[in-house]
Structures are given as structure tokens and as C-alpha cells.
Design a protein around this nucleic acid. Structure first.
Lengths: 210, 210
DNA sequence: GACAGGCAGTAACATGAGTTACACAGGGTT
DNA sequence: AACCCTGTGTAACTCATGTTACTGCCTGTC
């Protein structure tokens, strides 16, 4: 854990803070597809991502969901952050996109470090900033873009976050993330294939030129 | 300014901080409809709302816009906050919804107070929290709701923020805020009138039961 | 009163996206 | 081989929303 912590956060935090994190943090390993936080859960700590990737989803009352953004190494979830401090329930779902390692920080420490370490404050503010920006991007996508553009954006993001130009998803899974239907996704993917932007195999989509 | 500051923020901040705010803050009065911050502007300070209401809009490259949320007394704009600290340009537009008074705080003070005053830190975190929640609500609205539901939500919010059940807007103005066309709004408003939820006059919509 | 300009009502049509239904393909199991 | 299950391709249809076009109504100004 020490070396991974150093690698992911060494350039952000001073030695003393890194030591504190290593001291109180609890290492968690989560395998791809596992749910980390569910909507309505009370949040017990703040996660610092060491390795892997996490997708953050919003869900409405009927169970329809929508992908908001991805988290990677060095990121934390500002939503969780909120929930910790306000003692409120999670408003989002977090699912491991790949096999993921993270450190959970107890809520009590967060407040303490905010007063004590400038680097921590900057990190927390930076996280809020990044998350707000990503929310704006999500809003832009659903408000201003058509399905085909949104799909291209999704495929680009997915290939990037998994560092793999082959996307191992079914059309149905994509449809869930984008809050639409399987048929619509199949239709648009076929169109992208004809335009030579992707190639389609069973359970796999290869990004060629998006 | 002193008394208004006391009224809006007295229960949040300690005397010492209130004095500092009064010392360095610059009072601005803005009349309804005026633009406070434009997309791409560099942000010189952080606004604390004393009186009135501000609407926050997102705009895409073609100039289509979308209302994100409103700010009221005691609120600050977390976007601005971000921009200040990161020295980046504004990603949103802020327009006075009513006649508005606010205090501009220089960027330099923000960092200082974050270290010095716990109440300030809580205020800043609280603002981030509130804004993230409102962004989520905005996403829910555009992702999961139909136009008629969104319109009802809009009218409710507008009546509430202006403390006036008579909404003084043209159909065109509403269409801009909701990123749709005038004809669509006219159609849906007429439907709401038939359902006795509102009544329509020229340049005015009266909320009856939404 | 006549006129202009902004505003609202409405019909007719275009389009993107969601839905239903069904055929078929690939891969594993018996 | 025969079977099944999951995933994909496609047609045909519905529906919400957006677009175009035209009408007429207020209101202030000349």
C-alpha cells in the first residue's frame, strides 16, 4: 500500500500527511463490476483511488440510470465527500469499472486534515472542481448532443479509461449507462461501423477512428 | 451593507470574519436582467449574495443555453469559487433574476480565510455540496423528465425564487431557459391552463396549483 | 384611428428516439 | 448433431419534441 500511495499521491501530499493516510486508511480491493456505494447508503469514509477505475451513476425513482463520469487513480469522489461531511445518504451509485484498489479514510480525519494541511485542502477543492466540471460535461452531453454524438463520446471515454481500444461490453450494457434502449444502441453502432469509425464483434467493439 | 451582511450571514460567520468581509468586500448592486458573469470571463472575486436572486446558465458552442439553478441570499457560486482558485475562465453565465445586491470578495482572501476560519470552510464546503446537489437535480430533470414535467418544475422554481405566483416572462424567454422552442412552451402552457394548473395572460403566467 | 412590432395560438409536418416483434448467429452444453 | 441461451440486426410502428408557417391580438406610438 505504501508504494502505491506514494505513486498515486506522492506529488500531491507531504510526507507527514502520507504517513497519516497510511496509518488510518483501510485498503480495499474491489473487482470489476462490483458495486462500491449504492444510492441511499450512508457513507462511512472517503475513498482515495490507488489503481483501477470507477464509474459514477445517477438513478431515478423508476430505476433508470445514467452514467455521470469515471474516476481514476488520484481521484476521489466529491459526492462521497459531501455525504461524509453532511452525514447524508449517497445520491449516486459507484461501480468498479475495472479491478480497483482504494484507501478509505474515516470521516473524522477529513475535517482535521482540512484545517492542518494546505495540500489536503487544495486536493479537496481540486476534486470538487474536477467533479463539477465533469457534471457540466455530462449536462452538455444530454442537453445539447444527439444520441450518436453521445455514443461516440461514451466509446471514447470507455476506451480511454480502460486503456483498451477494444471495449468489452454488450449493447445492452451501453444502453443502461446511456439511459436508452438496446435497439437504439445497436442501430447507432451499426451506423458507426459503416462509417468505419468502429468495428463490431460479439461482446466487443473496436474503436478505430472516433 | 453591515446590516444586510449581518442579516444574511450573521448566523453563519463569527463577528471577526464578518468584520473582515465588511472590510475588504465590495458591494455591488445589479438590476434584474443584467449579466453578472459571462462565459469565458476571468473571475475576479467570489460573490456573496445579500439580496435578490441570480440564475446560472450553461451554454453550448452554438449559443443554445440551459438554466442550471438559481442562487439566493446566503448563497455563493461554487463555479466562481472554482474559477477563482484555479485562475480559470468561467464555464457558466450568471444573470440577475431580480434586483440583486452582492459582496465581491477578492480571491486572495478566500485562501487565507479557509485556513483561518472553520465557519468559512464549512460555508465553502456547504456551497459545493448545495451546488453539486442542484447539478444533480438539473441532470435528473433533463435526463429523466418529459418537457411537461420540466416546465412545471421550472414554473414552481421561478415562482418560488421571485416570491411571486405571477411569473412575468414571455414564452420565448422560458423556451431559452429550458433549451427548447417557443411553440413547444406555448403548447404545453396551454395544456397546463386547460388542466387548471395555471392561468395565462399576456407576459404573465399565474401559478394556481402545480 | 392607423400602424408597427412583439407576443401568443394553432395546424401541419419533419425528425429523432423509444418500442415491439421477430429472425438469426455464435458458443457452450448435452 | 441437437439444443439452448445470449447477443445482435432490422423492420415497422408510435410518440414526444422540434420546425415552419400563418393568424390574430394586444399595446404603445405616430
Amino acid at each position: 500500500m505504501q508504494s502505491e500511495l506514494q505513486e498515486a499521491y506522492g506529488f500531491l501530499f507531504e510526507e507527514e500527511l502520507l504517513d497519516e493516510i497510511a496509518g488510518v486508511g483501510i485498503l480495499k480491493n474491489i473487482s470489476a463490476g462490483e458495486t462500491i456505494i449504492e444510492i441511499g447508503d450512508y457513507v462511512r469514509g472517503m475513498p482515495l483511488l490507488l489503481r483501477g477505475a470507477v464509474k459514477i451513476l445517477r438513478e431515478d425513482s423508476e430505476g433508470d440510470e445514467l452514467l455521470l463520469y469515471f474516476l481514476e487513480r488520484g481521484d476521489t469522489c466529491a459526492m462521497t465527500l459531501n455525504c461524509c461531511m453532511g452525514q447524508t445518504k449517497s445520491e449516486i451509485r459507484a461501480v468498479a469499472e475495472r479491478d480497483t484498489s482504494l484507501i478509505m479514510i474515516p470521516v473524522s480525519k477529513m475535517e482535521e486534515w482540512t484545517a492542518k494541511y494546505k495540500s489536503w485542502r487544495n486536493f479537496v477543492f481540486g476534486s470538487y472542481h474536477a467533479r463539477l466540471s465533469e457534471m457540466l460535461d455530462a449536462i452538455d452531453a444530454i442537453a445539447f448532443m444527439n444520441m450518436d454524438e453521445r455514443l461516440m463520446r461514451y466509446l471514447r471515454d470507455k476506451a480511454k479509461i480502460n486503456r483498451d481500444e477494444n471495449i468489452h461490453s454488450t449493447h445492452q450494457q451501453i444502453a443502461y449507462d446511456m439511459h436508452t434502449s438496446r435497439v437504439v444502441i445497436s442501430r447507432l453502432l451499426k451506423k458507426l461501423e459503416i462509417e468505419k469509425k468502429i468495428s463490431l464483434q460479439r461482446n466487443q467493439i473496436k474503436v478505430i477512428n472516433l
